[in-house]
């Protein structure tokens, strides 16, 4: 295992210290338990939006903490959901009296830990709600699975709901908006390589030179199918088609296209893939009105990509365009 780290056991805390040093005006970082909050929290009278999950997906979530997006993030151990105390600590740091919305990606561990935290917070009298995002079309949502995973759509949800909270939309409004985003966003991912969790020391899976893995999540877990590697046209088609069919997206729909790198895929390839996706969508008459291209929800150094498509309405566009100032996403501020 080759990593720029000192000790696998302290990677998350060591990294958070670096993040604190890098963004002194923007963030307030604690490591026991690990919480990254915006420096000016709590913001009185504003719904606080809190998310969290395993580390290793950076910049998600801590890179999205700041005005116009998250009030706090709870980074767990690498690929391990955070514990309830972290979530509780985050909630108590950022609750500005207008309630707290927890954004939870649909994984058993995340759901259980956030649920426990919400129970504990409710017992203390806070108005804490949670929404569970499950946008990954690679997983069949049925009685026979833990349901679809939360992946790329999370980034879009956090931006849009964060902007609404910033405009003092109340907790009911934020929750309803979050559910509308969840209902309208779909994603699918693929990998060319696995990735190595520091405390494991070996790749979670390995692919031969001529193989790719389709339908992966974001935890280095194997995907739904292993198949011969294809060129960019083939890969993008395999990601986009199930996404389009699932909602389904229709001719004339307006959309936000998010082309995401799993971490190790260079920007030159990502833009290339993005261009293909734009062309395929144009052919179907889907109007891409906003886009995001880059590594925003990753699996450590994994090479691969995901495509997320969000069906837009006017309110979502306005909220997407609203100012945001975080370590990883910033505009208008």
């Amino acid at each position: 295992m080759k990593k720029i780290i000192n000790d696998p056991a302290t990677v998350v805390a060591d990294s958070l210290r670096g993040m604190a040093a890098a963004h002194p005006e923007l963030l307030r970082v604690s490591t026991k338990p690990a919480v990254v909050a915006r420096a000016d929290a709590p913001v009185r009278g504003k719904v606080a939006v809190v998310s969290g999950g395993g580390s290793g997906h950076e910049p998600l979530h801590a890179g999205f903490v700041g005005p116009g997006m998250l009030d706090a993030a709870c980074p767990g151990a690498v690929f391990t959901s955070p514990t309830p105390d972290q979530v509780q600590a985050a909630v108590s740091q950022v609750d500005g009296g207008a309630g707290v919305l927890l954004v939870v990606k649909n994984y058993t561990g995340d759901v259980l830990n956030f649920d426990t935290a919400a129970e504990l917070a409710a017992a203390e009298g806070g108005d804490v709600r949670s929404v569970v995002i499950d946008d990954d079309v690679a997983v069949k949502d049925s009685l026979y699975t833990a349901g679809r995973r939360g992946v790329g759509g999370t980034v879009l949800l956090e931006k849009i709901v964060g902007a609404a909270a910033d405009r003092k939309v109340d907790l009911d409004g934020c929750e309803a908006l979050a559910r509308r985003v969840i209902a309208n966003v779909r994603s699918m991912g693929m990998a060319l390589t696995g990735c190595t969790v520091p405390h494991v020391g070996e790749p979670t899976f390995t692919l031969a030179e001529d193989e790719m893995e389709i339908g992966i999540g974001i935890h280095g877990e194997p995907g739904r199918e292993r198949m011969p590697a294809e060129n960019a046209d083939g890969i993008v088609r395999r990601l986009l088609e199930p996404v389009l069919e699932d909602l389904p997206f229709r001719e004339g729909d307006r959309a936000l296209l998010f082309t995401n790198s799993m971490g190790g895929t260079p920007l030159i390839e990502l833009y290339l893939a993005h261009g293909i996706a734009e062309r395929l969508l144009a052919e179907r008459g889907i109007r891409v009105e906003r886009r995001l291209v880059g590594p925003f929800i990753t699996s450590l150094e994994m090479q691969g990509m995901s495509i997320t498509l969000l069906k837009l309405d006017d309110e979502m566009i306005e909220l997407w365009d609203a100012p945001v100032h975080t370590a990883a996403l910033r505009w208008g501020a």
């Binding site: 338990p33 395993g54 767990g76 151990a77 391990t80 959901s81 955070p82 514990t83 309830p84 105390d85 994984y107 058993t108 561990g109 259980l112 830990n113 649920d115 426990t116």
Partner: peptide
């Protein structure tokens, strides 16, 4: 266990 394990196993064993 609840406050240190995380993941699915943390709340379940907790």
């Amino acid at each position: 266990l609840i406050s240190t394990v995380g993941g699915a196993a943390g709340p379940l064993y907790g």
